[in-house]
């Protein structure tokens, strides 16, 4: 096991280097000169002199690898430079936005786990009956519906018409409900499908047939089926945590949720490259770390997966 963890840790180092390099060259590949953008947004006329000064300030005159080295060594220490727009440190902006995004992702996660477990169990109990078919239809439609449309419809019905929740922002504690429900919709569809199929399949396993023959209570049998079906879903769920956090972008923009996704989209419109870079870098690190944890947990649970790395 130790050997596996060591190998797995080592193998993520080149990936992290690759990612940091990719997110760094983004700025250097962009069509517009960052120094000029930085001047324009502060409403300074980009004269040659001013541009040259700004280039020096942003250390754009260094060699490509020199710039990369400065950027990566600062980034690792949490210094992503200053925003081009308001001149504040990017990390401060991130620190303000990250809790909002994490809170939204967490609430969605709880909704996903509860709703998909309950729905899958109902489907298994009533397999092939009306309620099972109905849930499967809803799941199928949920997969084909654009999340932003679900968001708009929910907003219209629950916020505008019925006035139950605030339409946008993060002022009241109830604000999180609409964005979280919208965000969880697509994921619930996936997990209901996965968990239901696993559980229905396990119905025909010998141990279930034997348990039924022994005359065990239905609830006990259901518990057996659930415990044996949940493993693949846990892996998939673990993998989806970073996706969930990255996927908040659209939802945050609909509901004006002050998280990192909204910060990033605003930065794209403003050509505020340091913020975009920081967002990409942080998300990639999060993604790699989550994958690493999921792999290690799976390997600990099931020794067969340790091979083949």
């Amino acid at each position: 096991m130790k050997r596996y963890v060591g190998k797995r840790l080592l193998s993520s180092i080149p990936i992290l280097i690759g990612i940091s390099f990719l997110s760094f060259i983004l700025i250097n590949l962009s069509e517009s000169d960052p120094a000029e953008v930085a001047l324009r947004v502060n409403e300074i006329t980009p004269t040659d002199e001013a541009v040259a000064e700004m280039r020096e300030e942003l250390e754009l005159d260094k060699s490509f690898f020199g710039q990369y080295w400065t950027w990566i060594s600062n980034s690792v220490q949490g210094d992503f430079g200053n925003s081009y727009i308001n001149g504040k440190p990017v990390m401060d902006e991130m620190k303000r936005a990250i809790p909002a995004t994490l809170w939204l992702a967490f609430v969605s996660f709880v909704i996903i786990v509860i709703v998909s477990t309950v729905a899958a169990i109902i489907c298994t109990i009533y397999e092939g009956r009306f309620i099972d078919r109905m849930i499967r239809w809803i799941v199928f439609i949920g997969e084909a519906m654009p999340s932003f449309w679900i968001g708009l419809l929910l907003m219209w019905l629950l916020a505008v018409k019925l006035n139950l929740f605030p339409t946008s922002g993060m002022e009241s504690p109830l604000s999180v409900v609409l964005p979280a429900v919208t965000l969880s919709f697509a994921y619930i569809s996936t997990y209901v499908r996965l968990l239901r199929n696993n559980m229905v399949q396990s119905k025909h396993e010998y141990y279930i047939v034997y348990a039924e023959a022994r005359g065990l209570k239905k609830v006990t049998i259901l518990k057996h089926m659930f415990r044996n079906s949940i493993q693949s879903s846990i892996t998939a769920l673990g993998m989806s945590i970073p996706k969930l956090i990255a996927g908040t972008v659209i939802i945050e923009n609909i509901f004006a949720w002050p998280g990192v996704g909204r910060l990033c989209v605003t930065a794209i419109f403003n050509h505020d490259y340091p913020i975009i870079q920081a967002y990409v870098f942080l998300m990639a690190v999060l993604f790699v770390t989550c994958n690493l944890l999921v792999d290690i947990i799976t390997a600990a649970l099931d020794p067969r997966t340790r091979e083949g790395i």
Partner: peptide
């Protein structure tokens, strides 16, 4: 190793 949503935004 990049989530595709983040890659596209980048």
């Amino acid at each position: 190793s990049f989530p595709s949503e983040v890659m596209i935004l980048a």
